[in-house]
Nucleic acid binder design. Structure first.
Length: 603
RNA sequence: GGGCCCGUAGCUCAAUGGACAGAGCAACUGCCUUCUAAGCAGUGGGUUGGAGGUUCGAUUCCUCUCGGGCCCGCCA
């Protein structure tokens, strides 16, 4: 409907230009929208006002010229008005409504990757939590936003893959391994190994500073892992995932045997080398945590196409630094290797290789992004947690310095989430291991409510997540309001079926029966769906979906109370309204699908 | 000191540079012998933090300013 109007408007502009009244090299973007007031028509456009800038002619004059040249005016419009500054207001003919509704019934929303509009491949990286523990609520927010954005891309015909980056190297994994080892020693009551000292609940190497040991992981979730190391895992996890990622040097047949049967209290006997044992425990912990994360995400109805492990980068790190060097953006100073990111609008240069010769996290990240491009992705989109905002400028700088265009990478932050319970914020401390996990959140409010409230806020505003409201199954909760509309339609259609009233096909139904304002209002709202999806994808703002869902639900509820579908004397009217309602159901379903929220047939 | 985000109705928040700034909640008034009242219709509620600027037009873009939050390692 909107696309049709847009086309007609473009034709009018072209016709005017052909008449040589105006001279245009291209047609600028203009909007077609449904005005708030009915007196401004069913839809209106600002085309004339947008053209003013190019043509230097008063908008009113342009608008009048356009209206004169609109094709098939009598067929499509009751009337077209030009108002005040230069709005063109369309009052649509009934047949326009009916034809549009007919077309809407064949809309489909792709749910998997397709290539239609463009061959551009998008890589969407989000969540990418550290493999040191369970996912938290910010991760959950990122999961909801990233997943829906990927679906939006697919819906507009773009290929988009979801990727989760696993940071499985460096000191944090070492810390993780020592934390797990301590829990294991606690459980087995083994003697304190030689060369270790106690720090709190942890056994740490005697030469560690106390500050260093502050970074160990205190979360009790590691006790469970330690128990499994002692008693055995009943899972093919390490054969499949473990060997795939870390090879059978780490996961040798002997070690896999003990992982499955349990190490008992013999871990130190079986892997006596401290270095090897810590490395092994690190890998086991990573695989274990990553799989727990996968499980929650799956519960959240989200599956990533790729899980990319940092340790798989290998040579890529030095290769990408070489590339930067070749491009002339690298220098040495104070015994370290630096990237001149200030040449690309970063506020200071960044170290790539430390004095001690090891690459920084940033250098690894550059290699990772280079590798994303190497794998054939045209556009990289990253969602970062709020604490990473310093990385936006430097990462964009790096991608450009590697020789890629600036618009090949987009980085967005997902802001903090504060959980409110009883109107009060829940404080969380990650280091002490006291935080609400994603799993606990889903236990508490459910998947639909979680997804809804994560999507409804713009991604870069702080989110106050009101647990009480999210759980409330009443009118105060827009989620249920929306789902209720869907359930109502389903119930209505079921009743119709029970009465032997069959839904007619688009070419069999007589839509000219639809004359009521409420019917037209519903058609107009439904018509906005494609352009809304397109806008949300373009702006990378999934938050437009829940709002649209509420609006569509409201328009439907309003229609439902004003217009009866069943039990009206005219069977043709029932058929037409049933058709209308069935198309509305499809669109409502598609909207909820994009959000990953269930559309219940009964409530 | 530098950077990022946010300031809109009593509360929580909308508004791809467009018309009289909109919803929900809360408050008040009506509507169920017929398809789900988890619903509908209506009333009240605003100097969009403030001051300039760009524009035919600014909540939106730019500059300054006030208030709140977050970040600023050769950690990851």
């Amino acid at each position: 409907m909107i696309e049709r109007l847009r086309k007609l408007t473009v034709e009018a502009i072209a016709a005017v230009c052909k008449n040589k009244e105006f001279n245009l090299d291209f047609i600028p973007e203009f909007s077609i929208e449904q005005p708030k007031e009915d007196e401004y028509g069913d839809f209106s456009t600002n085309a004339a006002m947008v053209l003013t800038k190019k043509l230097k002619i008063q908008p009113i004059l342009i608008a009048n010229a356009l209206v004169d040249h609109f094709p098939d005016k009598e067929k499509f419009f009751k009337k077209i008005e030009v108002v005040k500054p230069g709005f063109i207001n369309f009052f649509l003919s009934d047949s326009f409504f009916h034809e549009s509704l007919q077309k809407m019934s064949s809309w489909t929303i792709p749910s998997s990757s397709v290539e239609k509009n463009s061959s551009e491949k998008i890589l969407l990286e989000f969540v990418s939590a550290n493999p040191t523990g369970p996912l938290n609520v910010v991760n959950a927010r990122a999961a909801a936003v990233g997943d829906t954005l990927a679906k939006l891309f697919n819906a507009v015909g773009l290929r988009a893959d979801r990727e989760f980056y696993v940071n499985d190297e460096g000191t944090q994994i070492e810390h993780l391994a020592y934390s797990v080892q301590s829990r294991y020693l606690q459980l087995t009551g083994s003697e304190i190994p030689q060369g270790y000292k106690m720090h709190g609940i942890f056994w740490i190497p005697a030469d560690w500073s106390l500050e260093k040991s502050e970074d160990l992981y205190q979360g009790e979730y590691l006790i469970e892992l330690a128990e499994k190391i002692r008693d055995g895992f009943r899972t093919p996890l390490f054969r499949d995932e473990g060997i795939r990622v870390y090879g059978n040097e780490i996961f040798s047949p002997e070690r896999i045997h003990f992982l499955e049967a349990g190490f008992g209290n013999k871990l130190f006997e079986i892997i006596p080398s401290e270095k090897e044992r810590i490395k092994f425990l690190g890998c086991v912990s990573v695989i274990y945590n990553v799989n727990l994360q996968k499980e929650v995400l799956k519960r959240f109805r989200l599956e990533f196409q790729n899980w990319f492990f940092q340790s798989q980068l290998g040579e890529k790190v030095s290769q990408s630094i070489e590339q930067l060097k070749k491009n002339g953006h690298v220098y040495e100073q104070d015994g370290a290797v630096w990237f001149r990111s200030t040449a690309f609008q970063d506020d200071k240069d960044r170290v790539l290789i430390r004095q001690d010769g090891t690459p920084t996290y940033f250098a690894v990240d550059i290699a990772y992004h280079a590798y994303k491009k190497e794998r054939g992705y045209d556009k990289l989109i990253d969602f970062l947690g709020p604490d990473h905002h310093g990385y936006i400028a430097r990462t964009k700088a790096a991608v450009q310095a590697l020789g890629f265009p600036p618009d090949s990478i987009e980085i967005y932050l997902i802001q903090l989430v504060t959980l409110l319970s009883g109107g009060k914020p829940l404080r969380m401390s990650k280091r002490a291991g006291e935080f609400i996990t994603m799993n606990e959140l889903l236990d508490d409010v459910g998947i639909d409510a979680a997804r809804w409230y994560f999507l409804v806020r713009h991604r870069d505003t702080h989110l106050d997540f009101d647990l009480d409201l999210a759980k409330l199954q009443s009118e105060e909760n827009p989620l249920y309001y929306t789902q209720y509309a869907y359930a109502r339609i389903c119930s209505l259609m079921q009743t119709a079926e029970g009465e032997g009233i069959k839904l007619l096909s688009a070419d069999a139904v007589d839509l000219s029966q639809l004359q009521h304002q409420a019917e037209k209002g519903l058609i107009k709202k439904m018509a906005q769906f494609p352009s809304l999806v397109e806008m949300a994808a373009d702006l990378r703002e999934p938050n437009h979906l829940p709002r649209y869902a509420v609006e569509l639900a409201r328009t439907f509820h309003s229609f439902y109370t004003e217009c009866r579908v069943l039990g009206v004397p005219d069977r043709k009217l029932t058929d037409a309204r049933l058709f209308l309602v069935s198309v509305c159901r499809q669109i409502l379903k598609s909207t909820l699908d994009l959000m990953g929220i269930e559309a219940p047939e009964k409530m």
